[in-house]
């Protein structure tokens, strides 16, 4: 994580000659005892918080490893006492279900292009807004800044009509386009601000050498902008991977991602935990892997996006 913990405070030097040698302002032994006790309290409190935070995911995971009868008969926590009853059968069952595997594949087919397109389009536009001159540039950029907080809800109906008119409604391409459009304001904002920090002399030198803007963009701006692009890509990927609302409306039954396929099972909740629990775990395993592999970029992306 980027966030640093506080630098450890230097330990107070032990007074050389017992309490008598104590410099004024040093904590007394009693005060230090109170501090130690309070520190212990903090440890206990945060341990409890950590356990509480872990419990829901642990419950989902353990439930996903129990067969339907076990889940119907007793709480998932009883499996902690009898771990022998755990099985991967639920996972083999849903992985053998062509509907679920197709939905998983659809999720990939939506997330990867939507991420790539946002990165490419936003990098191009970000560079133009930062370093190229065109009429109305600053004014247009303010509009983009304004679009940062536009809720997707306002776009659902009109875009559905628009896509219906041009035959994109229900297709994977339509879902991807919608995600790209609503990912762009933040992406452009992030990359433009990052690119603007590139030293002017660097670009001037490249231009003097006769490089075209396209060459400068590819050879200089993109490599320098890698950290911001990485944060953006991870953020956008997770955003699209985790989306349900957009896909619920724009994806036809052949194109529906995992989130939509699973929510259609919610009506029978309780009777089908053996499908829902492993399904939910399947859908969150990719984000978790991305999160742990790129935690720093992810946290940075979230923090940069905190105006979105």
């Amino acid at each position: 994580m980027t966030v640093q913990t506080a630098a450890p405070r230097p330990a107070p030097p032990t007074p050389p000659g017992g309490p008598a040698g104590r410099a004024p302002g040093r904590p007394s032994p009693a005060a230090r005892l109170v501090a130690v006790l309070r520190g212990g309290l903090v440890q206990v409190l945060l341990t409890v918080v950590a356990l509480v935070w872990l419990t829901p995911t642990a419950g989902l995971f353990v439930s996903s490893l129990r067969d339907a009868d076990d889940n119907a008969g007793s709480g998932w926590w009883s499996a902690l006492v009898h771990p022998g009853s755990l099985t991967f059968d639920n996972y083999s069952a849903i992985l053998g279900d062509s509907g679920i595997t197709q939905a998983f594949w659809n999720t990939v087919l939506i997330s990867v292009p939507a991420t790539a397109a946002v990165v490419v389009l936003a990098a191009l536009a970000g560079y133009a807004f930062a370093w190229l001159e065109f009429p109305g540039r600053d004014w247009v950029f303010l509009v983009v800044v304004g679009m940062l907080v536009v809720p997707v809800q306002i776009g659902l109906l009109p875009v559905a009509r628009l896509f219906g008119a041009v035959g994109l409604f229900g297709t994977t391409a339509g879902v991807v386009l919608f995600h790209v459009a609503y990912g762009l304001p933040f992406a452009i904002f992030l990359l433009r601000n990052y690119f603007a920090e590139i030293p002017r002399e660097m670009l001037e030198a490249a231009r003097m050498d006769g490089g075209s803007e396209w060459t400068i963009f590819r050879k200089l701006v993109l490599p320098v902008g890698r950290p911001a692009i990485a944060s953006l890509a991870i953020f956008q990927f997770l955003w699209v991977w985790n989306d349900m609302l957009v896909a619920l409306i724009f994806a036809g039954s052949d194109a529906q991602p995992l989130t939509v396929a699973l929510q259609s099972q919610m009506r029978q909740f309780g009777a089908n935990i053996d499908v829902l629990a492993p399904g939910a775990f399947l859908s969150l395993i990719v984000p978790l892997a991305v999160f742990f592999a790129f935690q720093r970029h992810f946290v940075e992306g979230v923090m940069a996006g905190s105006v979105k």
């Binding site: 989902l60 985790n242 829902l276 629990a277 939910a280 991305v290």
Partner: peptide, 10 residues
């Protein structure tokens, strides 16, 4: 990092 769907089922 987790979807609202997965969190919802959880």
């Amino acid at each position: 990092a987790v979807s609202f769907l997965a969190a919802g089922i959880t």
